[in-house]
């Protein structure tokens, strides 16, 4: 099985380790990976801010770039949802419509791909720590990926997995929202972090760099002990990759 990986902006520029972890874990599961050069961004920041016409070239480029790939895998529910759900809202070139439909059936978020497509339920790693999981909104509500990451986490040996209260409540990031309504967004992440701390977990696992940056930034600045970790990093770490 061969997959093309899509590395979203935050992973590319702020958390490249997560991208590398994803590569390592996929390879560990016997999956061949390909990095398509010239990839940039899916266009979500501008789309969410209302700039639709502006991102049409970005979307068209994305569709062409990943045309003909068996699978496209991204370590982010939000960027996957952008392509699979929201590209359809754009007035893209009619000649690319079929390619888009095709792409929508082949682009997967990392956890979703591992469990639903690659049928990997357990990788055999070990991580002797208490961890909880934060449901990213686009991943859980737009893509319906809720059970898959939990399956992957629970399969790790010696991990003490606990659910926090309201694990599916928004962390308040929301891309530009976090800057436009900075104070409000901070209050939302404060609420999230209360629940994380209350769960007693040492690690809060997530599947989207945006949420993890937001949650981690609040935890760090307020000297709260739980640490954020992307699920790809968790799996890589549990396998000593």
């Amino acid at each position: 099985m061969k997959v093309a990986i899509f590395i979203p902006c935050l992973t590319e520029h702020m958390y490249p380790e997560t991208g590398l972890s994803m590569v390592k874990v996929l390879r560990h599961a016997g999956i061949e990976i390909e990095y398509v050069h010239g990839q940039t961004c899916c266009g979500q920041p501008a789309f969410n801010a209302g700039y639709r016409d502006e991102i049409i070239p970005i979307a068209e480029r994305f569709i062409r770039l990943f045309r003909g790939k068996d699978y496209v895998i991204a370590p982010s529910g939000s960027c996957t949802a952008m392509v699979r759900v929201f590209y359809r809202e754009l007035d893209i070139d009619a000649a690319l419509r079929d390619d888009l439909d095709d792409l929508c059936g082949r682009i997967f978020e990392f956890c979703e791909f591992m469990v639903d497509v690659a049928k990997v339920d357990s990788l055999g790693g070990r991580f002797p720590h208490k961890a909880t999981y934060h449901d990213s909104c686009h991943l859980s509500r737009e893509l319906g990926v809720v059970a898959q990451p939990r399956k992957l986490i629970s399969s790790i040996a010696d991990i003490d997995f606990v659910e926090m209260k309201d694990s599916d409540a928004c962390c308040g990031f929301g891309g530009m929202f976090s800057a436009k309504f900075g104070q409000l967004s901070t209050e939302m992440v404060a609420r999230k972090c209360e629940n994380i701390v209350e769960s007693g977990a040492e690690y809060v696992i997530g599947a989207d760099a945006g949420c993890l940056m937001n949650i981690g930034g609040y935890l760090r600045k307020n000297h709260l002990s739980p640490q954020t970790m992307h699920i790809a990093d968790l799996l890589a770490k549990s396998l000593d990759l």
């Binding site: 702020m14 958390y15 490249p16 991208g19 590569v23 976090s178 800057a179 600045k221």
Partner: peptide, 24 residues
């Protein structure tokens, strides 16, 4: 601005994924 205050923001990586991947 707007984002920071009671929370820290992530740092930009000096190299980025593409470079690190090539190195790996």
């Amino acid at each position: 601005p707007g984002y920071m205050g009671r929370r820290a923001i992530g740092r930009f990586d000096s190299k980025g994924f593409a470079k690190r991947f090539r190195r790996m």
